[in-house]
């Protein structure tokens, strides 16, 4: 139980640190920063688990399943971070539907046609912005590379693309993207 409680405490701590960092200075590669904060928190979690007595949480002093408790706590810490915090960050940063909703809210909950919604996407950046931003990220990630009049996938991109295609076929997703 101590491991699970520690996971919540460390999650709150790394969340607070991440928010503070994002406000104190301009952070270019935010996902990398989040991963670094997570790694520091993971070390902190491990050290505090090994050093702290369960009695701190009002639990019996002897752990009956110390390694299982540690793994359980570490898994939960990872879940709170990547499954909840990073997911919320990602939705707020990249979610299309959410951006369209917040655009409409910022404009005073007005009604718009499809074309107006698309043209005003992300405070007026428009739909072309989405494509260029994603392409730049895929190129930066090393999945495709720019050629004279188009793009070509890299070996890594080919493997990842095939794997993703297999997953889409497994679930029989008809309309993707």
């Amino acid at each position: 139980m101590g491991g699970a409680l520690l996971s919540v405490l460390w999650m709150l701590a790394v969340m607070a640190v991440s928010i503070l960092l994002f406000h104190l200075r301009p952070v270019q590669r935010r996902f990398r920063t989040l991963c670094t904060v997570f790694a520091v928190g993971a070390v902190g979690f491990t050290v505090s688990y090994l050093q702290m007595s369960p009695a701190v949480f009002g639990l019996p002093p002897n752990r009956t399943e110390p390694w299982t408790e540690f793994l359980n706590g570490f898994y939960l810490y990872s879940f709170w971070f990547f499954g909840v915090f990073v997911q919320l960050y990602s939705l707020a940063d990249r979610g299309f539907s959410l951006t369209m909703l917040t655009d409409l809210l910022s404009e005073g909950s007005v009604i718009r046609t499809r074309q107006e919604i698309k043209a005003g996407y992300a405070s007026g950046k428009g739909t072309a912005y989405v494509k260029h931003k994603r392409m730049a990220q895929i190129i930066h990630g090393g999945f495709i590379r720019r050629e004279q009049d188009g793009y070509r996938d890299t070996r890594l991109g080919r493997r990842v693309g095939r794997f993703l295609l297999t997953l889409q076929q497994l679930y029989r997703f008809r309309e993707t993207g």
Partner: peptide, 30 residues
């Protein structure tokens, strides 16, 4: 929750769809 996040990315991500189009292309170039 992790599983749902992964399947949603596979289903709806623009980057994923783009990479899949390259995987489908016979010449691997578009």
């Amino acid at each position: 929750a992790f599983y749902m996040e992964v399947t949603f990315i596979v289903m709806r991500s623009v980057s994923v769809r783009t990479m899949v189009e390259f995987a489908r292309a016979p010449t691997r170039a578009l």
